[in-house]
Amino acid sequence: MSELEKNTPEVQGENTAVEQKAAETSEKSSAPMLEVRELSIQFGGLRAVDGLNLKIKKHQLYGLIGPNGAGKTTVFNMLTGVYKPTSGAIFLDGVNITGKSPVEINKSGIARTFQNIRLFKEMSVLDNVKVGMQNSTKYTTIEGILRLPRYFKEEKLMTERAIELLKVFELDGEKDALSANLPYGKQRKLEIARALATNPKLLLLDEPAAGMNPNETEELMNTIRFVRDKFDMTILLIEHDMKLVSGICEELTVLNFGQELAQGETSAVLNDPKVITAYLGD
């Protein structure tokens, strides 16, 4: 199965220009950016996620919601290779990425943020973003140690790109600060910037609004929309904040006890009596 999937023509286009990519995708707009089929994982006797199906179109803002312990973060961990699914398959842009390592999955185009912020705390804000660009730089370690011209050329390019990214998130003023010293909201933004630095096709945000006040959440919603439009990004997010979910998500999947409870347009799903029961109880 995987061989067949790998050979589909949709695999190409990693190095093509953005316009070309856009043209390609408009042709195959029916093909989803991310497709998850019957994804399940079992921890001992517990089926944490059971038969999940997902289809996320390119440029879509998709929400994954559900009560605590529903298995949302587990889904993210399977999508990014931290956990190996017990059964089921994951396709990114037509390529089967099931069971690959986190590094390979990131290289094939999925980047994520974490529920409990995981920045490189003892490194500067700028370096955090530059670490994300690691795989797009070509100079070797020896070239770095000997300080050959390619080191300077690529480092300069990297810094410029990183600062550009930081500007998008209004972090360029603090580029030399230690990332641990940033206020909470900015740390969340830096995590998104770092994820974008890896040039992903799909961005996974794990509770981006956790711990934010309403004003910050409002600002975050604008940022997410902006990122989606500016970088032509497909975004899947987990969130508890219903204002954010109803405000920006186009489609939703609701998980409860590892199983899909409802799926579809945001407003329809949020008014589904089953969903309301799951959240509020009988």
């Binding site: 931290v82 986190p102 590094v103 995981r118 994300g132 690691q134 730089t137 770095g144």
Partner: peptide
């Protein structure tokens, strides 16, 4: 050698692994 190693992408990768193993993997660091 030590200074240039630490102040290059390899050194940054090492520090990233030190600061957060899981996050380093998530941004594609081997």
């Amino acid at each position: 050698i030590l200074m240039t190693f630490i102040d290059s992408k390899s050194g940054r990768a090492c520090m990233a692994v030190r600061d957060n193993y899981i996050a380093a993997q998530s941004v594609g660091i081997n």
